[in-house]
Design a protein around this nucleic acid. Structure first.
Lengths: 217, 217
DNA sequence: AACGTCGGTGCACAGGTGTTTACTGGGTGA
DNA sequence: TCACCCAGTAAACACCTGTGCACCGACGTT
């Protein structure tokens, strides 16, 4: 007998499958609020998702694959949002301010997802670690591309940098953004600490940009 | 019957206890090479250390406490080494070069320990996360103190900065060092990738320092 | 209307887990 | 020398784990 996850509304089979797949992801991210992926048990997830353990295998080969799906869902969205906010910017202070705003908003909306990413970036599951590193690399590459060929006047000088130096700088920028996200999670329920962190992180990004402006290869 | 961990050499009781305590820490760090602390089982550790599960409680209340001890052993040593190398330095390039040298040497000597720290910094065990954050905070504070009141001429301008700004900068510096250590672990057996990472990280630190030199509060 | 597909079920298995309990026997201080 | 201490032992406890298997029944196709 099939369990009804969202009432008795009749769905196509593939839609129902997608529904329980998402239920698994949601349940997992909820449970991962206070434990690492490598200690998350398959039974625990299926229990929270409202299905039987063996049914897990209809969606993922193992917990690691579920982790990879979670990474794509979590970082893909934020990466896109960061990219969107960059179009039309002209000043570097604006870039910093807006990027930080998107980051804080994303963490506010999905704290569990970002907690998961922070945990697993150097966590125990190799395949998940790789997936995260890949997403961050793409983030740094996109930033580099936007800065060099985009309309951000204040970054025009980057066009004369060697590509490797640009990547060096954008990697530092993106890494620091994610480190900030990770630190943010520990103070997410203390508005004053959040404001202080945002202020400090913003200044740190300005410091990095100031370094770029006075960089001699 | 007491198991002999290092032959039949007779030791005082407290010395023997210290010996098996260290055996537990060593076994744990070895097992943590490819898993997170939260999925490390007490039985696994005691098996690898050559004692019976119940004897674990003679040394630690639970796996979390063992983790805290591991943090102190791992980060304490590196923090001291970083501090030592700083005495007598005068130039900021020298500071960067020497700090990076110590970092790479420490990671080379104890890759497992640093892998553990990287994993658990945002890992699933709250008490261990706190212990790591505390060590990093002390590292940034010590760097700030050494720069402001030490003999590093190139950093003399920092004496006129507000204390909060100095901490902002040293936190960025220290955070980036540890992020580098974490990244280093993924390429520790590829000399060319190691050299590339070291080059990039050094340039990133120079970029940060350049930012400091042109900082307007 | 008949039939194959396949997401979900229920049950079983062998093995691992943390923790408690009563114990042993060698180092140690009186 | 003798009695205490206490690190380490052995066995048992109840519980949780991943995975295999046969099965069911609604959906979708022909």
């Amino acid at each position: 007998m099939h369990r009804c996850l969202l009432g008795d509304v009749s769905h196509s089979r593939s839609a129902r499958k997608e529904l329980t797949r998402q239920a698994l992801l949601d349940a997992a991210v909820r449970l991962l609020a206070d434990q690492g992926l490598s200690s998350l048990s398959l039974r625990e997830v299926t229990r929270a998702a409202g299905i039987v353990p063996a049914a897990f295998y209809r969606h993922f080969a193992d917990i690691g694959q579920l982790g990879v799906a979670l990474v794509e869902q979590s970082l893909g969205g934020t990466r896109d949002a960061e990219r969107m906010v960059r179009i039309g910017l002209t000043g570097s202070d604006e870039l910093i301010e807006q990027s930080m705003a998107v980051l804080f908003e994303e963490v506010r909306r999905h704290p569990e997802r970002h907690r998961f990413v922070a945990r697993e970036r150097y966590g125990g599951v190799a395949v998940v670690r790789r997936a995260i590193e890949e997403q961050l690399r793409r983030g740094a590459d996109e930033l580099a591309a936007d800065l060099v060929s985009g309309g951000l006047d204040a970054a025009a000088y980057l066009r004369e940098w060697p590509a490797e130096d640009v990547r060096m700088a954008t990697t530092l920028f993106v890494d620091h953004m994610w480190q900030t996200a990770a630190a943010l999670l520990d103070v997410v329920d203390d508005p004053r600490a959040m404001a202080a962190l945002r202020e400090r992180a913003t200044r740190q990004l300005r410091l990095i940009v100031a370094g770029c402006e006075h960089w001699r290869g």
